[in-house]
Design a protein around this nucleic acid. Sequence first.
DNA 1: ATGATTTCTGCACACCGTTCAAAGTTCATA
DNA 2: TATGAACTTTGAACGGTGTGCAGAAATCAT
Lengths: 238, 238
Amino acid sequence: MSRRDRIRAETTAEIKVIALRLMAAGGPGAISLRAIAREMGMTAGAIYSYYPTRDDLVTRLIGDLYTELVDTAEAARDAVPADDPGGRILAWAEAVRGWALANPEGFRLIYGDAVPGYQPPEDGPAREAEHRACTGLTGLVAAAWPGAERAAGSRDYGWSDFGEVLAEAAREAFPGLPPAAVALTLRVWGRMHGLVALEIYGHLRALVRDPGAVYRDEITDLIVSLGLTPPAGDDRRE
Amino acid sequence: MSRRDRIRAETTAEIKVIALRLMAAGGPGAISLRAIAREMGMTAGAIYSYYPTRDDLVTRLIGDLYTELVDTAEAARDAVPADDPGGRILAWAEAVRGWALANPEGFRLIYGDAVPGYQPPEDGPAREAEHRACTGLTGLVAAAWPGAERAAGSRDYGWSDFGEVLAEAAREAFPGLPPAAVALTLRVWGRMHGLVALEIYGHLRALVRDPGAVYRDEITDLIVSLGLTPPAGDDRRE
DNA sequence: ATGATTTCTGCACACCGTTCAAAGTTCATA
DNA sequence: TATGAACTTTGAACGGTGTGCAGAAATCAT
């Protein structure tokens, strides 16, 4: 690796770091090539040597952030013994919410309108992270299977109901798991996502004092509905 | 009402209509004063006679859209007899999702990043519509009470846990309803919101062929968890 | 040391929201 | 009906944005 390659890698990374800082400070809209270049003592045009366009930079950012989010969730899950599937679900959910609260702009970048006109690419690190998240959630549901079967509803799903990538991955990672479990996984995802999205976008701010308590109730109910026993948290508000 | 007032009202409305069309066509980011003025054969500066700033226009748009969404949901609910609370919940949920699919950019405007740097005001039509939505949902939960009590979790909530406006409204509209029911209402909201948000923002696109079926399963499960009987829909996929 | 490759500048273009003086228009009133 | 006030619109300006491109500058391989 030549000296120039090293410097190039450093510059590429520095751009991303500054972009992240700008985003954390002023929201996704504050990510401007000119502002980045200004902080680096460069001209805006110079950035085009590292990222072909602004959206590519945003794409990379989303990939990094999503990966970080999934890393956090996986780590939280793995901190709970595998023989406590309910605890693992709660850990995952709380990790996601915690990360979202700590990185609200990151959450918006991942799950909201990144930038006006931004179109997420079909693949790339972000999709890969989302795939990891999906697999992780499927694992949580699989750990509750077949006890959770009664929560899966009576509709009969087939593998053809799902995208090839997801179906393939689910069948390989969790042999014997029926398609209905994957549908349930998506519902679990939605359930973990809903309240956090509302909270991050400020829709709960004026309504409830401790959104975390409501979220915890929701996840606890989710765990119970999967036929698992939720961790014995104190039922009092924090 | 003078002639000038009439023309002014028409112009004010036309600006909003064009803004809506631009948004539907190119997303929230396509709402530009210059583009609006261009379509109206005016100059951008002229718009400032009608809206003090661009964000005010967006705020009005959000108010209109949110009101439309809540109107739709309420109408769908009222089309189901009151002695079928489960059916009313399903109707509300499906109406919300249907509206979101028909107006994805509107949904983004309401529940996502409207525009980079946009800060939603504390009050206004949007907050009022959100308040109506909240009340509507509380009504749906109230209709399931006290049967739904077991879904409310064991945490003990007090009225002080909620915003004054919400607490006041809930106590007045549904006397005797305990605070725990309001917490449950927020959870119901989150549950209705999660999958729709994921779908609108494209996170389910590559994963599942018929997100509507999964959503219906989720809402059905929600209805059951409230101790109600869901409408007897056919269990087959559409 | 030379030639190729990469990086960066500086300028240009087109777009954006916003402001403002001046011109144009409408309206109420004397 | 004439006049003055109120309102609307223009057009230019300012500062901001992403994006291209010619050419200068720096770096690297040979």
